[in-house]
Design a protein around this nucleic acid. Structure first.
Length: 837
DNA sequence: CCGAGGATAATTTTT
DNA sequence: TTATCCTCGG
């Protein structure tokens, strides 16, 4: 068993292991003598306090952004412990991310002091799933030392299976099937449970068989994917009522963080554990479920990966008699930010409904600012300028730290422009998210070595490194190994051991393979009696892996070596190599250095849960935000999720929020004219102000001729938006005919934006009148429609383009024109965006 | 076994 | 446009 943390007797936690002392003791005393509230309740507002002390029965805490959600959760745990309602090991507390789990552990620790041991059952759904599985692995046909595969392994495995089926792995991409499996597992569905339609949709109708083959393969590999960490426990608990009953007895309190993000499997898992049969034990009313879910339906932004907002919306039906507490008092943002965010999110249907309020109201507070820029380059430049301005001391000598500012983008391609700009400006920035430490090639290779040593059955790991560094063990040899292993149902490494003793291999391959096998034999032997960091170093050394990078002349090689050193160093924190591998499988994040003062750049998704004084939200344009794909694939609910994303973005800001939209954005290399996001029009006038003048930066006055270069001659296919018109833009902020525009908009949306199959794209040239079409900004569609739509232009034509001015057509490919512009040089644009002169 | 060049696809991300 | 992946040729 891997976990040593659960040192409290597993079943029958009837004897206190440690007497709570200090704060906890005082709290207990307070409870017994109905004395004044214990310290930890002080400073909580009435709703928060109620959420903390309502320990019995189902409870849903609807915690709006910045309303002290984590505080409630941690205080609640502290309260349960302090009042002796349960021991740490009797509380099951689940979060989504390791970060959240870590934070919660820390904060509970601070509240309760050293009085109680760390909570063994506080963790992510997945880590708790692993814990359950390690205990009861045999009940689902695994050994307790099973391996956890990550996405990369899974894809490679599936690819093998697809090829083994004799299918074309181009036509049926493994990645896509991996996602399908993940989707099924998110719903808790085993191969025989998936809908017929789904099964038919892949691999010439062999989807189900393939899924089955995949599961079988995992079993032989003694491995789990992430989805299994949820699904196996469910199956195990269902099939073994006695085990389930043990856990029912064990867990007195259940807490779930971010409930709006739970998927169906997690929901089933939770219900299984929460639905305790009638119980006469003290501390629980007969049959009631002490389950407390905390979440915010307005911040549900992970529908695309299986989260079911419905879980939170249905809570009181799932748990009859549930108490629902709303936390609406916001401690983070100004009245303007809350006003803007609240008004925006009110456009969503199907929400439980909350209105955040604050007592921080001050005429000095800035309204939410909306800025327009000509294109994304100007957007980045202007944001950079604003940041510099904030950095300079103001009239009161106050300056702002870069750490207090963040740029939150919808899609990561937007980051680049900001990075470029900040590099030239010499402005410190850090990108949050992005490729992670443990996903780097060299780290994964090294890990594969370690895995293969610890886990001789881990064929995937073995296969990954058997020829890394190059040892002349090509495809042919690998296939041979593979076949031999499959035929005898043994791990590949065992097959290798056998094969080197035979004459079946070519002498060269045989020699190399023998070296590899001997290496693994040595390392396995050393596993028990060598310090694991030392062994790790030895493995990388003796296998020639380190050397491989030392000989590599590429620019990244030194960095990779550095990463390997870092990997070894970080192993020091773990007791054993196995412990380390387990950690890495589940915790894929690595900390960022917080020392430097720098602006953060990240996606809106990764910003959830964070807060900044000043937040920049660029790219509020139709097609980007709300994103085209969300609209195409998710329809109305897709739009609502985008709106929640906007809400999340806005509510990250404490003091200042700057929204931006541009008129032109380059998408897949082509310049596209864009229109302001509908979300901008959904903001309340009272809390929003349209910023001016930013546009004439550095004399970038454009060819359009208008003073701002913005919106002249542009047509909004939806009809009028208050952001279309420069005069309105200046001050008055009227929304004439907005209702009508809204109507046109939805109309147009369903008519045209739902087309993913190409060719129905209607483009509207500038100044064209007649029936209004929608100008798609979806590069894919436009690009695909090229081949059979000959352009109306011919080489040599004199044309005018909004961004680049006048020029001559130099080349034509379908509807893509290459134009030599007089001022801007050669560019490629869509013919819809130029007019003949 | 490596490198070049063509095809392909380009939201969001945790575990 | 750009990045990545994969195939093909040397």
């Amino acid at each position: 068993m891997i976990d040593s943390s659960d040192d409290i007797p597993f079943f029958g936690d009837s004897e206190p292991v440690k007497r709570p002392s200090g704060l906890a003791a005082r709290a207990m005393a307070a409870r017994n003598q109905s004395a004044p509230a214990p310290d930890y309740l002080i400073g909580l507002n009435p709703e928060q306090r109620q959420a903390v002390v309502t320990t019995e029965g189902p409870l849903l805490v609807l915690a709006g952004a910045g309303t002290g959600k984590t505080r409630v959760l941690t205080t609640r745990i502290a309260h349960i412990l302090a009042t002796g309602l349960a021991f740490p090991s009797q509380i099951l507390a689940v979060t989504f991310t390791n970060k959240a789990a870590r934070e919660m552990k820390e904060r509970v620790g601070m509240l309760v002091g050293g009085a109680v041991e760390g909570m063994p059952w506080l963790g992510t759904f997945h880590s708790i799933g692993v814990k359950l599985l390690r205990r009861h692995a045999e009940l689902v046909g695994l050994r307790s030392d099973f391996t956890i595969l990550d996405t990369d392994d899974v894809v490679r495995l599936i690819k093998q299976l697809i090829q083994a089926e004799g299918l074309d792995d181009k036509r049926w991409p493994a990645r896509q099937f991996a996602q399908m499996i993940d989707g099924w597992k998110n719903k808790g569905m085993a191969p025989h449970e998936i809908p017929e339609g789904d099964a038919r949709a892949f691999a010439n109708g062999k989807g189900r068989e393939l899924y089955e083959a995949y599961q079988n393969r995992l079993k032989t590999l003694n491995a789990c994917d992430f989805g299994d960490l949820l699904c196996h426990p469910i199956r195990m608990l269902r099939a073994n009522p006695d085990v389930l009953a043990d856990y029912h007895r064990k867990f007195k309190y259940l807490l779930v963080d971010e409930y709006q993000d739970t998927n169906t499997a997690q929901y089933m898992w939770l219900r299984l554990l929460a639905q305790r049969p009638q119980s006469k034990e003290p501390g629980q009313r007969g049959g009631s479920v002490n389950v407390c879910c905390v979440g915010d339906d307005d911040q549900s932004i992970y529908g695309w990966r299986g989260a079911e907002v419905d879980n939170i919306l249905r809570f009181d039906k799932d748990f009859p008699g549930a108490t629902i507490i709303r936390l609406e008092r916001n401690y983070r943002s100004t009245e303007h930010i809350l006003g803007a965010a609240g008004h925006l999110i009110a456009h969503n249907e199907g929400r439980l409904g909350k209105t955040l309020f604050t007592e921080q109201s001050d005429p000095e507070h800035e309204k939410v600012q909306v800025h327009a820029a000509w294109d994304s380059e100007e957007e980045a430049r202007a944001v950079g300028e604003t940041i510099e301005q904030l950095q300079r001391p103001d009239a009161n000598g106050r300056r702002h730290n870069l750490n207090d500012m963040a740029i939150l983008v919808r899609a990561s391609f937007q980051m680049r422009e900001f990075e470029d700009r900040f590099v030239t400006m010499g402005l410190n920035y850090r990108v949050i998210g992005g490729p992670r430490f443990y996903e780097r090639q060299e780290i994964r290779d090294a890990m594969a070595y370690f895995r293969a040593v610890c886990q001789p059955a881990d064929d995937l790991a073995f296969e990954r490194i058997v020829n890394v560094p190059k040892r002349g063990l090509g495809d042919a040899t690998i296939r041979q190994l593979h076949d031999y292993a499959r035929a005898r149902d043994i791990p590949m490494i065992a097959a290798a051991r056998d094969l080197v003793e035979t004459e079946e291999l070519k002498p060269k391959a045989r020699k190399s393979l023998r070296d590899v096998v001997e290496g693994f034999t040595r390392w396995s032997a050393a596993l028990e009696n060598t310090p694991h960091t030392e062994l790790a170093e030895r493995i990388l050394e003796e296998s020639g892996y380190t050397e491989m990078w030392q000989n590599d002349k590429s620019a990244e090689a030194p960095g990779r070596l550095e990463n390997l050193k870092e990997l070894i160093r970080s192993m020091d924190f773990y007791e054993s190599m196995r412990g380390f591998l387990e950690h890495v499988a589940l915790v894929m994040d690595a900390e960022q250095n917080e020392d430097m003062d720098a602006v953060s750049i990240m996606t809106l998704h990764s910003a959830k849960g964070l807060e900044f004084e000043t937040v920049f939200l660029p790219g509020w344009e139709e097609g980007l935000f709300p994103h085209q794909r969300s609209l195409d694939e998710g329809g109305r609910s897709g739009l609502e999720e985008e709106r929640r994303l906007a809400y999340v973005g806005l509510t990250r800001a404490k003091k200042r929020a700057h929204l931006w939209f541009v008129s032109n954005r380059r998408i897949h290399g082509l310049w596209q004219s864009t229109i302001p996001s509908r979300f901008l029009d959904e903001l309340p006038e009272a809390h929003v102000e349209v910023a001016e003048a930013e546009m004439s930066y550095g004399g970038y006055n454009r060819f359009g001729g208008g003073s701002s270069g913005f919106s002249a001659g542009r047509q909004n296919p939806y009809g009028a938006s208050r952001f279309d018109n420069p005069e309105i833009f200046a001050s008055t902020y009227e929304t004439p005919g907005w209702k009508r525009a809204q109507a046109n908009r939805t109309d147009a949306t369903s008519r045209n934006w739902g087309s993913r199959s190409g060719h129905q794209v209607e483009r509207v040239g500038y100044g064209e009148s007649g029936p209004r079409g929608v100008r798609t900004i979806e590069g894919e569609l436009v690009a695909k429609s090229t081949t059979d739509t000959p352009s109306a232009f011919s080489i040599g034509d004199r044309v005018f383009h909004m961004k680049f001015g006048n020029g001559n057509v130099a080349a034509i490919e379908g509807n893509k024109l290459t134009i030599d512009f007089d001022k801007a040089g050669q560019k490629r644009v869509l013919d819809g965006f130029v007019t003949p002169v």
